[in-house]
Simulated scan of single mutants.
Amino acid sequence: MKRSQLIAGATAMAVLATAFGAASVAEAKPGKGGHRGHGPEMTFEQLDANGDGKITAEDLAAAKAARFAEADTNGDGALSAEELQAQADARRADRVEKMIERMDANGDGVLSMEEMEAGRGDRGDRGDRGGRMISRMDTDGDGAVSAEEFEAAKAKMAERRGGKRHGEADTRSE
């Protein structure tokens, strides 16, 4: 299979997960950062397709169908790589706009380094990832991570994941 076909297929799968993830928002358990769905967070009103004040399986199916129809810009009942990419690009653009709105302290429409750093602070303990990483890996307490400390931390993380590297499937039998 050609590499471009593999990339298009992977992109299609990722965007499909995004396109249909919003309907699962009502079923998803919220995590630290909000919902676990892959798409933009949908409101109750958007999910309650028939407007009866309840979200049912039929409402979720209708939301999925609406999301698919929105992505199917040529109306042929199928999503091409171009349609999937356009949908993904629109979602990314929306996320970027919301991030700028949230973090742009001086209202100039762009984010400075200071605004980016200040904006990370509103995420609680996720704000200073670098400092937390160093404190976890710095076993000799000198305020820096040596190559040996770094490799030891990598090995410890791999051990916690059952020997697999980041992104690999877990092949352990249960």
Rank of each mutant, 00 (worst) to 15 (best):
residue 64 K to P: 02
residue 86 A to Q: 11
residue 39 G to P: 06
residue 62 A to S: 03
residue 90 A to N: 11
residue 78 A to G: 15
residue 47 L to Y: 01
residue 92 R to D: 12
residue 88 A to G: 13
residue 46 Q to M: 05
residue 75 G to M: 05
residue 92 R to K: 13
residue 69 A to K: 15
residue 49 A to L: 00
residue 58 E to T: 10
residue 47 L to P: 00
residue 49 A to Q: 07
residue 65 A to F: 07
residue 46 Q to C: 03
residue 88 A to V: 02
residue 84 L to Y: 07
residue 80 S to T: 15
residue 90 A to P: 09
residue 33 G to S: 11
residue 78 A to R: 15
residue 36 R to Q: 15
residue 33 G to D: 08
residue 63 A to I: 01
residue 70 E to T: 08
residue 58 E to Q: 14
residue 55 I to D: 04
residue 31 G to V: 06
residue 30 P to V: 11
residue 32 K to I: 10
residue 89 D to R: 10
residue 51 G to R: 10
residue 69 A to C: 04
residue 40 P to G: 14
residue 33 G to T: 11
residue 55 I to W: 03
residue 74 N to Q: 08
residue 54 K to C: 09
residue 88 A to E: 07
residue 36 R to W: 06
residue 31 G to W: 02
residue 35 H to N: 14
residue 84 L to D: 00
residue 36 R to I: 07
residue 32 K to A: 13
residue 70 E to I: 01
residue 33 G to R: 13
residue 74 N to R: 07
residue 64 K to D: 09
residue 73 T to R: 14
residue 62 A to K: 03
residue 36 R to S: 15
residue 77 G to Q: 03
residue 79 L to A: 06
residue 73 T to I: 12
residue 47 L to D: 00
residue 80 S to H: 11
residue 67 R to I: 00
residue 45 E to W: 08
residue 40 P to H: 15
residue 53 G to D: 11
residue 72 D to F: 03
residue 72 D to A: 04
residue 91 R to Q: 13
residue 74 N to S: 09
residue 37 G to T: 02
residue 39 G to H: 02
residue 57 A to Y: 05
residue 65 A to E: 15
residue 92 R to L: 14
residue 55 I to K: 06
residue 79 L to I: 12
residue 85 Q to I: 07
residue 87 Q to V: 09
residue 72 D to I: 04
residue 52 D to W: 05
residue 84 L to Q: 03
residue 39 G to L: 03
residue 45 E to I: 06
residue 93 A to T: 05
residue 84 L to A: 13
residue 71 A to K: 00
residue 62 A to R: 01
residue 40 P to K: 12
residue 68 F to I: 01
residue 41 E to W: 06
residue 79 L to S: 05
residue 72 D to T: 07
residue 69 A to G: 03
residue 93 A to Q: 13
residue 67 R to Y: 01
residue 72 D to L: 03
residue 28 A to C: 04
residue 77 G to N: 01
residue 50 N to W: 08
residue 83 E to H: 10
residue 68 F to H: 00
residue 80 S to C: 13
residue 71 A to I: 02
residue 80 S to N: 13
residue 91 R to Y: 10
residue 35 H to K: 09
residue 81 A to Q: 15
residue 47 L to N: 01
residue 31 G to Q: 08
residue 89 D to N: 12
residue 28 A to Q: 02
residue 63 A to V: 04
residue 88 A to I: 01
residue 66 A to G: 11
residue 71 A to F: 03
residue 77 G to W: 02
residue 48 D to R: 08
residue 40 P to T: 12
residue 88 A to C: 02
residue 92 R to S: 11
residue 65 A to N: 13
residue 56 T to A: 05
residue 93 A to L: 08
residue 43 T to N: 10
residue 79 L to D: 01
residue 69 A to Q: 13
residue 33 G to K: 11
residue 65 A to P: 02
residue 88 A to L: 12
residue 80 S to R: 10
residue 38 H to G: 13
residue 49 A to K: 05
residue 65 A to R: 13
residue 76 D to T: 09
residue 76 D to L: 06
residue 66 A to S: 14
residue 81 A to C: 13
residue 50 N to M: 08
residue 38 H to W: 14
residue 88 A to R: 11
residue 71 A to R: 01
residue 67 R to V: 00
residue 44 F to D: 05
residue 66 A to W: 01
residue 88 A to M: 10
residue 57 A to C: 02
residue 50 N to G: 11
residue 82 E to N: 15
residue 50 N to Q: 10
residue 57 A to R: 12
residue 50 N to D: 15
residue 90 A to F: 06
residue 30 P to C: 13
